[in-house]
Computed example of a mutant assay.
Amino acid sequence: MKKPLWILIGIIIIIVFILVSIFLFKYEDVTDDADHIKNIEEEHIKDEDNGTAYIKDTGDKEEMMMNIIAMEDSKEHLERVLQLFPDVDFDKIENSYGEGSVLKILEWLSKQDIQKEEDIILLINMMDDFYREEYSKLIEIIANSYLRDKIIFIKALTKIPNKTKQVAYVLHDFRTYDKSDQDLFNDLEMIVNSKELTNEERNIGVELLSSYSECGT
């Protein structure tokens, strides 16, 4: 066989090898992509089954809120619930989900760790929207927020100073300082000497506890 023919055969073999390599490389990429997509889909299904990943927004705020509090990991969605709170029609919830549904929401909320100033302000501003058992549960939530972090609570209250006396009544109704581990005079001293509070915030804190004391007279 002539030399040029061997060269031609060699070139053809090299070309075939390159084409096969390219094909296998692309096939591997496609397979990897397919596996990746499959894994994502499986994770999404798993998350949806566990109720952890997605909250379908149907445009119905009441339905969304009830769906959230029914989820096993609903604590992760506390912020979303509080965002919905001012816009939810609680009468609609009672009519759609049965008597006691609003109380169920508040009971769920009472088990959450509410520490952000804006969340405390939101709850204080909604005190007049609830009655009887629902009101009692809401003031429990507010009072527990106070007990959890009094400095943050006072900072929040300073932004709505017109609510100070009303909050004092709430704390009194909850018998906050009847608890064995709470001391009003120690807290008053803590507020006056706190370096975390501004003068305005200290004044609101003092007014809060003074108003609390007046509730018992």
Rank of each mutant, 00 (worst) to 15 (best):
K2P: 10
W6P: 06
I7A: 02
I7G: 01
I7M: 01
L8A: 07
L8V: 02
F17N: 06
F17C: 09
I18Q: 06
V20P: 07
S21Y: 06
L24N: 05
F25C: 03
T31N: 12
D32P: 11
I37E: 08
K38S: 10
I40C: 10
E41Y: 14
I45N: 14
K46F: 15
D47I: 10
E48Q: 11
N50Y: 15
G51H: 09
G51D: 12
T52Q: 07
T52M: 02
A53E: 12
Y54K: 11
K56R: 12
K56G: 03
D57C: 03
T58Y: 06
G59C: 00
K61R: 14
E62Y: 01
M66F: 09
N67I: 04
I68R: 07
A70P: 09
M71P: 08
K75E: 13
E76D: 15
E79A: 00
P86T: 12
P86G: 08
F90L: 00
K92Y: 03
E94F: 02
G100D: 10
G100E: 08
S101A: 06
V102I: 13
K104A: 14
K104T: 14
I105F: 01
L106C: 02
E107K: 00
S110A: 03
K111T: 11
Q112I: 12
Q112L: 13
I114Q: 04
I114C: 02
E117A: 09
I120V: 13
I120F: 06
L122H: 04
N125C: 10
R132Y: 10
R132V: 11
E133I: 04
K137P: 03
I139K: 02
E140G: 04
N144W: 09
S145H: 08
I151K: 01
K155D: 02
N162E: 13
N162V: 11
A168D: 00
F174Y: 12
R175I: 09
Y177G: 12
S180C: 11
D183A: 01
D187P: 10
I191W: 03
E201N: 08
R202S: 01
N203G: 10
G205F: 07
V206E: 14
L208E: 04
L208R: 08
S213N: 01
C215G: 07
